[in-house]
Structures are given as C-alpha cells and as structure tokens.
C-alpha cells in the first residue's frame, strides 16, 4: 500500500503529466464544472489556474470559495479501468496576492507557455487553490486520502 512519500510522488508525476483539470465550483444552488489549465506547486499545497473575471466560474468562486478539482490520466481506452488514476483535490480558491504573483506566474507559464498573453491580460485573474486534502483513486476502486497540514 502506498505511503505518504509514494503518494506524494505519484501526485507530482500525475500533475506534471496532465495539463488540464476539471474545476468544480458552486453558485446559486447548483454545482458547475469547467476545464482549466493548472499547475501544482512543488509542495502540493497549491493548484494554480487562471480565468477571466467575466466567467461563470469566477462569479461562483467569488461567492463560494470552496472548490474541488479533478485531475486524471485516462486515455479513453478499455485499459483505463485497470490503469487510469484520478485525483480529486478539495480546498479553497482565491486570487493570488501581489507578493506571490511573481513566482506562481513563473510556475504556471513554465507549464503553459502558450497562455502568456492570456494570463497577462488585465481582465484575467491568476488564482490558487489552497488544497486541504487529496483523494486519490487508482486501480478502479482503491481510494487513499492525503490530508495537508497548515
């Protein structure tokens, strides 16, 4: 069974291999999910993503900061059932502070260089999700939790 250090490595490998995650927000009594380009910090405490402020997801998370994000490595083949992995992160999202914007933006653009123009637009917000815990599902039904301490 996977131990903390193994699980962290597995998560890091997954986050490096995947560009997109599914962000779940909540607004007006209704869950809402959207695909976002994300990057994870090395300590796994934050998942960084970007959105323009006119979007529904931005409106949702301005009103309710608790969000979830799903990242997985499925290939849309039969083999997914035995070999795919899915990770759900739970936590709170907020716009990054000026003091941290520099290094988080660098991290984000290192992974998504094609988004430079998008992220630097005045209408675009760089957000970080402070992860409280990860749920990792592998081999179809094994579920491990990694709780972060703050």
């Amino acid at each position: 069974m996977e131990r903390a250090s193994q699980i962290k490595k597995t998560l890091k490998d997954l986050f490096e291999s995947q560009r997109l995650g599914v962000l779940a927000t909540y607004g007006e009594g209704q869950p809402y999910s959207s695909l976002v380009a994300f990057a994870a910090t090395n300590d796994l405490k934050y998942l960084v993503f970007a959105t323009t402020r006119a979007t529904r997801k931005y409106a949702n998370l301005s009103a309710e900061s608790r969000v979830a994000m799903l990242v997985d490595n499925r290939s849309n083949q039969d083999s997914d059932f035995h070999s795919a992995m899915a990770v759900t992160a739970l936590g709170e999202a907020e716009e990054v502070k000026e003091s941290e914007r520099g290094h988080l933006l660098k991290l984000y653009l290192a992974k998504h260089p094609y988004l430079e123009e998008f992220v630097n637009s005045p209408t675009c917000a760089l957000l970080k999700m402070c992860v409280d815990r990860y749920y990792m599902v592998s081999r179809f039904q094994n579920v491990m939790e990694l709780h972060m301490r703050r």
Partner: peptide, 9 residues
C-alpha cells in the same frame, strides 16, 4: 501530511 485510507481493495 497525513495519509488516510478511505477505500481499500
């Protein structure tokens, strides 16, 4: 960190 098993096969 703290790990916790939720569902084990």
């Amino acid at each position: 960190y703290r790990i916790k098993a939720r569902q084990i096969v």
